[in-house]
């Protein structure tokens, strides 16, 4: 049985951060969670909302899984993790619906999608179940942020090409204070519908993946 990875000097802040944000990024490297990625990134705001909601669930689920990692046996770990994650998502869904209804109207669709986000089970399985609570929480945060950034970039690219705006509807998600984010970059733009529709998501994601490979290769050569 694999024992918990011994971290000689406490939590490896740098490595976990780099993994989550870039080198082991949920979308760009693991290519996990593509269903929510393609489904909700019609605008940068939607990408941000989905990313933040996922990050929150990811942090808490990583902490919980890390806490019970010594109790859970390998044979039943998958059902246990699934129950933990599904319960968590349902609690978040109910809570938002009751106490932050406006936010829930925007995020409601995404929250249900988080249950099927394999990245969360992936992190529980490959990191949280083998590491301490602090490292697991940090991993959840960084993986979540990496996910959020890619979703936001993807949503932003599709939104700019598709409708000529950026962060439309941000005030609904983040409150009136952030309404300055809502930009109309190309006035009187007639729109390129394809970018907002699912095929545009696939094409844009393809170019993002290729871009990451390109940057990595350039960096290796140096």
């Amino acid at each position: 049985m694999t024992t918990a990875l011994k971290t000689p000097k406490g939590i490896q802040w740098g490595r976990i951060t780099r993994d989550g944000l870039w080198s082991n990024n949920v979308i760009l490297s693991q290519t996990l969670a593509l269903c929510p990625t393609l489904a909700v990134t019609g605008t940068a705001t939607n990408g941000l909302g989905m990313g933040l909601a996922t990050t929150a669930v990811l942090i808490v689920s990583n902490i919980l899984v890390s806490l019970i990692r010594n109790v859970v046996t390998p044979e039943v770990r998958i059902p246990v993790y699934i129950v933990v994650i599904a319960t968590l998502v349902t609690l978040v869904d109910l809570g938002l619906n009751a106490y932050a209804h406006e936010l829930h109207k925007v995020l409601g669709l995404f929250i249900a999608l988080i249950v099927v986000n394999c990245a969360i089970l992936g992190r529980a399985e490959s990191f949280a179940s083998k590491n301490g609570v602090g490292a697991a929480a940090l991993d959840g945060l960084m993986m979540g942020l990496g996910f959020t950034i890619v979703l936001m970039v993807l949503g932003g690219v599709r939104e700019i090409i598709g409708s000529g705006t950026l962060f439309s509807g941000a005030a609904l998600l983040l409150g009136q204070a952030m309404s300055f984010l809502e930009l109309t970059l190309i006035p009187d733009y007639r729109g390129f519908l394809l970018a907002i529709l699912p095929p545009g998501g696939f094409v844009a994601l393809g170019f993002l993946l290729a871009g990451k490979r390109l940057i990595d290769r350039r960096a290796m050569r140096k």
Binding site: F192, L193, L194, A195, L197, P199
Partner: peptide, 8 residues
């Protein structure tokens, strides 16, 4: 097809 979907 891309054109048809983008500019119906």
């Amino acid at each position: 097809v891309a054109l048809l979907i983008a500019f119906p």
